[in-house]
């Protein structure tokens, strides 16, 4: 049995070996990759996409998908920025933004469960709606002049014990979410719903509640990412977060989570997000043209998925 388990563990850690290999290659091609400044830079960029991808992991584990995360990020970011600009207390602002994110996510969950709409379609619709609402709310213009709130600035640009605050936020979010998925009854139910929804329902699990909760969590995390982004840029863009959903899905898949649901873990997603971050940064350092970067990124995703496929056969 221990052999059985260790084999499974080994295949789960595949993405980690991929990341290490990638770091080695990039640092040989350009040693400045390993400078503290650059590493912090990579991690800061990754923190936003990783936090979104954590939420996406929950959704994908239930067998769903959420295309609306980028729009949720834009809308909650715009609301936070306008509240700050009008002089609202930064902590109150952050609370409001997070709650709105939670609600926007829960709306997705309710449409999917109570309206019985396929997750892809439901969130495609809300992606468009939330983006449209952002444009209406901002009148299509960036919101700046957020004032000089030290605590809010700290959120995106500050350091805590020598580490960038967004990175610390990402790590804390990771630890909490990892715990929820692996150690709580809710986490077990997330896997059960994705593994066999009918069996879960027939075992007395309120599958609708579980699904609404995972979309709500995803909305909440998108709002958290929005706060980091708004703080870093000291403004909110109505077009913020476009195509973030695709990066998040890529990170989840790179981390070995199955799009069919029920299989995967959030540690893999963290690694997946780091792979994408290191790849982007590395290619910039090496001087790969931004056009080719897209091609390379796509190929890496394909290779990862094909290797995963081979493993499961």
């Amino acid at each position: 049995m221990s052999n059985y388990k260790s084999k499974e563990m080994l295949s789960k850690l595949g993405p980690l070996f991929g990341l290490i290999l990638l770091i080695i290659v990039v640092s040989i091609l350009n040693p400045s990759f390993l400078s503290i400044a650059n590493i912090f830079n990579v991690l800061r960029q990754v923190s936003i996409s990783a936090i979104i991808a954590f939420g996406m992991t929950f959704v994908i584990l239930t067998g769903g998908i959420d295309l609306s995360v980028g729009s949720t990020l834009a809308l909650t970011g715009a609301i936070a920025a306008s509240l700050l600009a009008s002089g609202t207390d930064p902590f109150l602002t952050m609370g409001i933004a997070l709650i709105i994110g939670l609600i926007l996510g829960a709306i997705n969950g309710v449409i999917i469960t109570k309206g019985k709409v396929a997750p892809f379609i439901a969130t495609l619709a809300t992606m468009t709606i939330y983006r449209g609402l952002t444009l209406v709310y901002t009148d299509g213009r960036p919101i700046s002049g957020l004032g000089d709130h030290y605590s809010f600035q700290l959120f995106g640009k500050g350091y805590f014990l020598g580490f960038p605050v967004p990175v610390v936020t990402m790590v804390i979010a990771f630890v909490i979410l990892y715990f929820i998925l692996q150690k709580t009854t809710f986490g077990r139910r997330v896997y059960a719903v994705g593994g066999n929804e009918e069996a879960a329902k027939l075992s007395g699990i309120n599958t609708d509640k579980v699904k609404i909760a995972v979309y709500a969590i995803t909305g909440f995390l998108a709002a958290l990412a929005a706060l980091i982004l708004t703080s870093r840029l000291n403004s909110a863009q109505p077009t913020a977060g476009e195509s973030y959903e695709l990066d998040a899905i890529a990170a989840v898949v790179l981390g070995g989570t199955s799009l069919n649901g029920g299989k995967g873990w959030i540690f893999g997603t963290l690694i997946g997000a780091l792979i994408i971050g290191v790849l982007n940064n590395g290619m910039n350092l090496i001087g790969v043209s931004s056009f080719w970067q897209q091609v390379v990124k796509g190929i890496v995703i394909l290779i990862a998925v094909l290797m995963d496929r081979k493993k499961t056969v």
């Binding site: 009854t185 077990r188 139910r189 059960a192 593994g195 066999n196 069996a199 027939l202 075992s203 029920g262």
Partner: peptide, 19 residues
């Protein structure tokens, strides 16, 4: 299709109803 989550362990399946 209705009784088990096939990718789950024995343990996880047994406690599915009464976790």
């Amino acid at each position: 299709t209705q009784g088990l989550v096939l990718d789950f362990t024995i343990k996880e399946n047994i406690t599915l109803t009464n976790l």
